[in-house]
Design a protein around this nucleic acid. Structure first.
Lengths: 203, 203
DNA sequence: TGTATTGGATACACAAACGTATTGAACTGC
DNA sequence: GCAGTTCAATACGTTTGTGTATCCAATACA
């Protein structure tokens, strides 16, 4: 029953986990292959046996984290859609709960975004992932608003873009000044206002 | 009257300009000292004659761009505060006009932010700069709202934080998907709503 | 149990980047 | 014009990182 001590998938996983850690600390460009191997407890031999290059690892890491995130979201959606509470709580809850370590996630995802802004190939992949992410959020918004008999004066898709923009901008401020801007404070201060302004009871 | 072909300040300036370019393209960590020198038309000799290390250059570049930005803002403020137009136009105008190349600025400033999130020293410098930036914006908001006899139900400082968060998040989306999210579209879609909701005529 | 295969460690060759020491040319003031 | 000085170029040694080739241990299988 014990999984073999040396399985390809296990070392790949440990290398990916190590890369996540190291990339968050030093960035994609700042991290050497050796750094990643150290973190994962391997030597470069293991690395090159599993990946062709650092770029290939970055791509694999992106896919892995992306898949995991979308999975987690799909798992959380049904609960949030049906459970009591405001639309806002549901949406913000999803954004937070689907992510483990906010700081690490922000660092990595910003790193990915920068990479994408410089690399059309990566931009396509990232935009695809973000589109799916927005689709999930949009679905959540639509379900909840339907259940509570409200309609929006703006397309939900656009509203979701707003939430994401605000959330990302706010997270950046929170991480830079944790004491002055507690996590979530900006969202909680303004999203209710927006929500109130764009929603109307349907009868 | 001709400035000497070889002045310390001139080569420093060219190196800083080159660094801006190269850092935007490859990031701080991804750019080598030689890359920067190539871009500026020098060899590494010139570099090490002017800077102690790449880190020192990054710091100098941060100071230079910061100073220039705050200068530009101070120059624009009086006009915007007095000229006709909505508060929103003034604020968004300031954010856009003070910045030359949106894409380059976003890349560099994101790069700085990431650097700050990993480096307490840099975080202090960045937060200081951002505080001054917010102070300018806050002043603009207060002046215009006073001139048009409106008061806010939220502190202007907080409102400014919202604008910045939204603006940065939105810019990220615009740069990733220029066709689907034209520059400024998110801000123009939602800021009027927020502004309307939090402001009330003072009599 | 013995043999084959798989997967990671070790060793090596090479390239890229750094930082310094030295050189030479262009300005400075005399 | 002529020293003295300044500043960037060149040349050099060192470090750091990459990728490959080989070796060795652990697993799979007969």
């Amino acid at each position: 029953m014990e999984p073999p001590k040396r399985s390809r998938t296990a070392t790949r996983a440990r290398l990916l986990a190590g890369a996540l850690e190291v990339f968050a600390e030093r960035g994609f460009a700042g991290a050497s292959v050796e750094d990643i191997c150290d973190q994962a407890g391997f030597t470069r031999g293991a690395f090159y046996s599993n990946f062709g290059s650092k770029d290939e690892l970055v791509l694999a890491l992106f896919q892995a984290t992306t898949d995991r995130l979308l999975e987690q979201i799909e798992a959380l959606l049904p609960d949030l859609a049906t459970q009591p509470g405001t639309l806002l709580d549901a949406v913000l809850g999803l954004l937070d709960e689907a992510i483990g370590d906010q700081r690490q996630w922000h660092l990595i995802s910003t790193e990915f975004t920068l990479h994408a802004l410089r690399n059309p190939e990566a931009a396509r992949a990232l935009n695809e992932q973000r589109a799916m992410f927005r689709a999930s959020l949009t679905r959540l918004v639509e379900e909840i608003s339907a259940a509570s008999d409200v309609t929006f004066s703006v397309p939900p898709e656009l509203f979701v873009r707003l939430i994401i923009a605000l959330h990302e901008g706010a997270r950046s401020q929170s991480l830079l000044e944790p004491t002055k801007v507690p996590a979530g404070s900006l969202e909680h201060a303004f999203l209710p206002i927006v929500l109130d302004a764009v929603s109307q009871p349907s009868h």
